[in-house]
Design a protein around this nucleic acid. Structure first.
Lengths: 340, 340
DNA sequence: CTGAAAGCGCTAACAA
DNA sequence: TTGTTAGCGCTTTCAG
């Protein structure tokens, strides 16, 4: 069995008859080291299959160049695309990311935060779990390191944030539904304690008012927006005395559940009931009928979030908070387009 | 602006009039420390909002309790579910995972490997990128730390492996298609240089032979199995002089592309051409018609891979290699079921 | 241009 | 039961 031996700068130093400090400087292209020794050192490093030890240099420098990224679920196109773009930008700037998922659970989120802090990440980029109402752990992050939020973030935390205009999204949705002659529009909403969902509800209500449409309280139903939530609530809406003629769902997965129930009940979509989701998950274009939805520009969000983070790292003491709000884009598909 | 100050065992020691080493022992429940001081230390740790520093303890102990996980793409149900299950098991055993994705690119994979090695992970769990043919970097992992592979793994590397029986999968698929009276079965394959795809091709050929069906070389087309590959190859097959009456695709995404082309050409699925994919990605049940596919038991693979890793950590010198091969399961949906 | 020495935060012998 | 000391691998003054 081969030996799992890792070589260190000491080994390189020994081979070349130098001191570890000289080797360290050579490897880091320190200006006051001769080109000759630099070349020799780098040569030897390759020979010995030298791999720098992050732990020790991070410990010494007090900087790990690691960034923790916490997302609710990895298996969602929106979040994984955001992370991909964050990673792209941060890698170019010498950072590596540690991606973790909360699975929408508060307890898991807290655990992940603690782990990341123990690992001594240089900062944390996060989108909060649905369950999270207690901001204590996020305050803890703030007291120990840098924090930037995207999509699901609360204003009270007073940190840099990148997201879309959720209020406006609802207007786009309602305006479009009205143009399709819908006037009994229900909203399968996310939990009101989360800012983005609250904004979507607020936008929905204001848009209804704008068009002089009635806004029934039992047409706004909050939930976790899982598949089964969409199914359950759609069933509930179908059973109610006053059926809506359109349903605006604050998440695509729940919209899919709602669609399943509609089809199982032989209800024509969009003719009898129109349907609109949120996030532009890829599967929305695969269903029959395809689901109209709102594009959140995950690539832009990822890029801008990473840039906000880098900016914050350069200037940790800056007091002004950066809030970047992108324009949402309505994607009209079969589930809400009666003309086709 | 609040101070981003992290407290250390020194701070705790100072508060209680102890030495750092005593505090360290107390925090780690060392037996030769009195209950009284343990309680006092833990109390003070909470007061000071103490967060252990992984870097230093890892450096000292030569063990980071970090495990690197490299997957081709995070945005695939199969891989994200495997990772989720790996994480579950490893967390229970005191490990944290660092999840990275190669995006199917060899260069990215090498970069991720180097990063993980620098971070001094205690081991790496990986599923290889499609592009990877040069095993040099995997040899490098082996020479520095522990390695366990799942799904996409090569036998020559001679490391612990968890996967399904790909050869048998193809038999299940072909047997089923034959039962549906298909006898001109094409195969949109993965690249032959990857063992699992080679096995699927081998199984496909042997199964055809078993049923005395002709096996045309231009009915086996290798590709990257992306959506556009599925589209392109399906188009090619439709244009060929001898059209198949069934297509077995080695990946669900490519199968989706193939389905799109079939529908665009008004070909009845499964009546004119039957279709079967691979991996049981959730969207396969959403398409119209839904896509038959092969279930790879991602949860089991994740769990068993993590257990194999833990076993290896307990006994790094063990020479015998563990190869765990699970039974595949054919999931019959509309795209291949003519009776419905 | 290179060397000597100290130290990041923590742990583990060995002493006391 | 607690303290002393040395050191994990690397960086960084400060000397030479």
């Amino acid at each position: 069995m081969e030996n799992k031996k890792k070589s260190t700068i000491k080994d390189i130093a020994a081979v070349l008859g130098l001191t570890p400090s000289a080797v360290s400087k050579a490897l880091n292209d320190h200006p006051r080291i001769s080109e000759k020794t630099k070349i020799a050192v780098k040569e030897a490093a390759i020979q010995l299959d030298y791999q720098p030890n992050y732990l020790s240099s991070a410990l010494r420098k007090g900087k790990s160049n690691l960034v923790g990224v916490i997302i609710p679920r990895v298996n969602s196109h929106f979040f994984s695309s955001v992370v991909e773009n964050i990673e792209k930008v941060l890698n170019l700037n010498g950072y590596n990311i540690i991606m973790t998922q909360s699975n929408e659970l508060y307890a898991k989120e807290c655990q992940e935060i603690d782990t990341l802090l123990k690992i001594q990440v240089d900062g944390i980029i996060a989108s909060m779990a649905n369950e999270t109402t207690n901001l204590e752990y996020y305050q803890k992050i703030k007291s120990k390191t840098e924090l930037v939020l995207f999509d699901r973030g609360e204003e009270e935390l007073n940190v840099d944030y990148v997201g879309i205009d959720d209020y406006k999204s609802s207007h786009l949705v309602v305006d479009h539904l009205v143009s399709q002659n819908c006037n009994r529009i229900a909203h399968i909403a996310g939990f009101q304690h989360i800012r983005i969902y609250k904004e979507r509800i607020r936008g929905y209500k204001d848009a209804l008012e704008k068009w002089n449409l009635e806004s029934k309280e039992n047409w706004i139903i909050e939930s976790n927006l899982r598949l089964e939530d969409g199914r359950r609530i759609m069933q509930q809406l179908l059973g109610s005395s006053e059926r809506p003629d359109a349903v605006y769902v604050a998440g695509d997965i729940a919209a899919l559940g709602a669609l399943q129930v509609l089809l199982e009940n032989n209800i024509k979509v969009p003719e009898e009931i129109a349907l609109i989701g949120f996030s532009d998950e890829p599967f929305t274009s695969l269903t029959q009928p395809s689901i109209s939805t709102v594009n959140q520009h995950s690539d832009q969000i990822g890029k801008l979030t990473a840039e906000a983070f880098l900016e914050r790292m350069k200037n940790p003491k800056k007091k002004t908070i950066n809030r970047i709000i992108l324009e949402p884009e309505l994607i009209i598909r079969q589930s809400s387009d009666k003309k086709k």
